[in-house]
Structures are given as structure tokens and as C-alpha cells.
């Protein structure tokens, strides 16, 4: 039953992502500034912590936050709110696709989706969720991570400043809905958080320009 249910969610989720515009997602009504014409100050440092990859191997979180420019979001695999996790997924797919058009840049970037429900999102579930995106392409990896325990997760969430709560019903019982404000974190290669996008300002074009801005900062030619 659990896998069947999961399959249903993945199906609806994929249908959402296949659309040109995720329903309810904000529309970009401006031309973003060109890469390198602005700066992205360091907002905060990223924490370390323990995570599990989609094969179940334990790693330090820093393995996925240092050494490359990183786009990281907190998700859970059965989330279906169009402007929540599916919007992040859709954005990641677009950013990945655009980066793959530039192999000289793609290998300098990684994508990370980290579950906020390790009780459900086991490495096996994350692997199923990842589907075809599990394999790196042109050096661009998309890592689908979970944590070994709730304790390990809450440490990471608190350090990132990611607010998460399980919604309760009218009788105070926990439901399957996890309230969390969608935040996507852009990290430089040293692990500094350089931008945080919420659903109000999560535009692939802006994200790509920000990634290029950080690459220019490293002396990489992006034109």
C-alpha cells in the first residue's frame, strides 16, 4: 500500500513538473540583471551534519555543500503542494537542463534535495523519487539525501533556519501534511549561503544568473 501510494504521488508530481508553469507559481515579470553585474553577500554559513545518500551510505553533509556551487532544498517525497516541493523540483529540473547545455559550467555545480521526513523517506524511497536524475550527467550530480535520524535532521534544519512542523487535525492529531516554507539555498564552493529563494522569487533564470555570478567571482568565464 505504501509503495502504491507513493507511486500515485510521484505520478501526480511528475504531471505537475511536466507543465510549463507549475500552478500557482509566481510569474517572472522582469528581466533579471546580467550575471556578474551584482554581488551576492554571504548570508550565513552552512552547518555540517550527517546524511545518508540514496544507497544508504552515511556521509558528512559537507561532502554535498563544499567544493562546488550547490543548489539545495528541503523536500519530502509525498508533498504535492504545487508551490512547495514540486516547484523546487520543477526549478531544479529546469536549472539542470540549462546547465547541461554548458558542460564547461555544469560540472562545477551540484543539486541537492534533502528530505525533511526520514521516517518515510528512506534511502530506498529517495532513490525511487530520484528516478532518472540519480545518475550524474556531464559531471552535474543531483543528490537525493535523507538523514539517519530525526535528531540529525533537526540539527541541520535549525542551522539552516528551515522552519518545519507537522500539521495537526482538529483533534490535535498529526496528519500527513508537513508545513514548511519552501526555501532553496544557493551555496558557494566554500559553503557560504549566498541566496535563499522562496516560492515568491524562485525563477530558474534568476537562479542561473546567480550561479553564473558566483562562477564569475571564481574567475570562470560564463559568456
Amino acid at each position: 500500500m505504501r509503495l502504491l501510494a507513493f507511486a500515485l504521488v510521484v505520478w501526480s508530481f511528475a504531471a505537475l513538473a511536466a507543465n510549463d508553469q507549475v500552478p500557482g507559481a509566481p510569474r517572472m515579470e522582469f528581466v533579471p540583471p546580467a550575471p556578474g553585474t551584482y554581488t551576492l553577500p554571504v548570508i550565513q554559513r552552512t552547518p555540517n551534519g550527517k546524511v545518508l545518500d540514496s544507497s544508504g551510505f552515511a556521509h558528512a553533509l559537507s561532502r554535498y555543500t563544499i567544493g562546488r556551487i550547490t543548489l539545495l532544498s528541503f523536500i519530502y517525497t509525498y508533498c504535492t503542494d504545487p508551490v512547495g516541493c514540486p516547484l523546487a523540483y520543477d526549478t531544479f529540473v529546469t536549472v539542470r537542463s540549462r546547465l547541461l547545455e554548458r558542460p564547461d559550467l555544469a560540472w562545477r555545480v551540484r543539486l541537492v534535495s534533502l528530505s525533511i521526513d526520514p521516517t518515510h523517506d528512506t534511502p530506498q524511497m529517495m532513490r525511487a523519487y530520484a528516478g532518472k536524475y540519480l545518475e550524474a550527467d556531464k559531471g552535474l550530480g543531483w543528490h537525493f539525501l535523507t538523514t539517519p535520524s530525526m535528531k540529525a535532521l533537526t540539527y541541520i534544519l535549525d542551522a539552516f533556519g528551515q522552519d518545519v512542523a507537522v500539521e495537526v487535525d482538529e483533534r490535535g492529531r498529526p496528519t500527513r501534511a508537513i508545513n514548511h516554507m519552501l526555501k532553496v539555498f544557493l551555496l558557494d564552493q566554500h559553503g557560504g549561503v549566498r541566496e535563499i529563494y522562496s516560492s515568491e522569487f524562485l525563477f530558474p533564470e534568476v537562479v542561473l544568473n546567480d550561479i553564473k555570478t558566483l562562477l564569475i567571482e571564481e574567475g570562470v568565464r560564463v559568456d
Binding site: 503542494d81 518515510h120 507537522v166 496528519t175 500527513r176 516560492s199
Partner: peptide
């Protein structure tokens, strides 16, 4: 709470899953 919910989730039906799984963002 999520540990409590895990117990309840075992009883969760497909219908409930299809209708009640919502993550809430900056709606």
C-alpha cells in the same frame, strides 16, 4: 510528532494520501 505520525501512517488509506498530502510553502 513525526514519530507519532509514523504509527498513524501505517493506517493511512490511499484516498487520504491522495487528498491530504500537502506541503505548505509561502502560499
Amino acid at each position: 510528532v513525526i514519530a507519532q505520525r509514523r504509527v498513524r501512517m501505517r493506517r493511512t488509506t490511499l484516498v487520504l494520501l491522495a487528498t491530504a498530502t500537502l506541503c505548505w510553502a509561502a502560499a
